[in-house]
Design a binder for these strands. Sequence first.
RNA 1: UCCUCAGUAGCUCAAUUGGCAGAGCAUCCGGCUGUUAACCGGAGGGUUGUAGGUUCAAGUCCUACCUGAGGAGCCA
Length: 430
Amino acid sequence: MDQVYIEDISKYVGQEVTVKGWLYNKRSSGKIRFLLIRDGTSFIQAVLSESDVPNKIFQLYDKLTQESSLIVKGVVRKEERSPGGYELSLKDIKIVQIAEEYPITPKPHGITFLMDHRHLWFRSSRQHSILRVRSEVIKACRNYLDERGYVLIDSPILTPAACEGTTTLFETDYFGEKVFLTQSGQLYLEPAAMALGKVYCFGPTFRAEKSKTRRHLLEFWMVEPEVAYAELDDIMELAEDFVSEIVQQVLRTKSKELQSLGRDLRALEKIKPPFPRISYDEAMEILKNKGIDFSWGGDFGAPEEDTISQCFELPVMIHRYPIQVKAFYMEPDPQRPEVALCVDMIAPEGYGEIIGGGQRTASHDYLLKRIKEENLPQEAFRWYLDIRKYGSVPHSGFGMGIERVVAWLCGLEHLREAIPYPRMLYRIYP
RNA sequence: UCCUCAGUAGCUCAAUUGGCAGAGCAUCCGGCUGUUAACCGGAGGGUUGUAGGUUCAAGUCCUACCUGAGGAGCCA
């Protein structure tokens, strides 16, 4: 294809090239006219001079509307007056389609309007940056785990029962049987870890909570490693190394995008192991010193998490929560059976919990006892109990929410911009 | 489910104590040989979310409902 992408334009100075794209904006001063063209990779300003092109081409400017698709030919020049430093002196314009009046003008819009036009909002440069960072975060997760010998195990989306029993699930019909959209692949990953040692899953998860906040989505993506023979300390080490590598890879490859989002890169450059590790009890001490009254046994809410994370520049790992606020499969601490061998990682700057995980119980009898205590359907978990009957070993894993990481790295106000098509309370369109 | 706030032109917003419905952008017409969310002149564009109520008079006050936003609980 006879086409040059704008991101490569600096290699073609002095040459005539073809660019295929869309009109982002246009400006005119009468005899000299400027087209701001985007092609998905970047933007470039193209110039039409009345003295340089046939009148027929020059007049096409008048017809062009925002987001009209066009193929242009022109000579690449270095030009300081042009945004981006390079400019195209146009020789020819071929209009592919004249766009209808485009709803998203280069002026401010409200969030409702933009969310209703999410399919078009992608075309603005801020969204380009966020979507590229998201793509890189996902690539970094896969790179990290693939390079270390983890096997990708795809967990099912349709599941017969709750993974954790606590969260509200989306229900659907399975030929007359009630089934649910998965809220975690973890239960299905544990058998795979017993088979292959180090495994992970990566997929969408669903929570039917009527959450209406900037840090919740009904559908979000989660990466979940699970490791046989790993104990709590091992998985905490993995979590901090994993997060650090992702942050550093994004910094290496997407610093231009982060800067265009106005992100302070210095804060991200500090994200390297070791991360602070505090116990639930120590976290309570911090809260007490900050004047927040909190009684032992409860789970931390957003205000508590924010207060704790503000004390650290790095993500902070809080471990050993009371057993009653955590899921039924958590291994109790042999030194203190009232706390679980679990860990949550709280991102800095108020971005909330990005990782939740821990050590899963290896004991068949303890697991069965917990299933009964939580009134979970025992029959549905028979396969899960089987894993504790045939060569049971300590094993641990965690889940990391992709959108929360993207929001943190990009410095977004709201999770909805961290996923292409957010699914939120009262919003399923587009 | 609960609490708070908002709904006026295609978009973003204004409208004094209840007193003629306004501006910028977008669109259309005209001008400008280096524009930078260009600029300058002109034009068209309205059942003020819906239904009631108070009043000589309601975008503005009251009631109900609808829609959306922010937060709580819950979580990654």
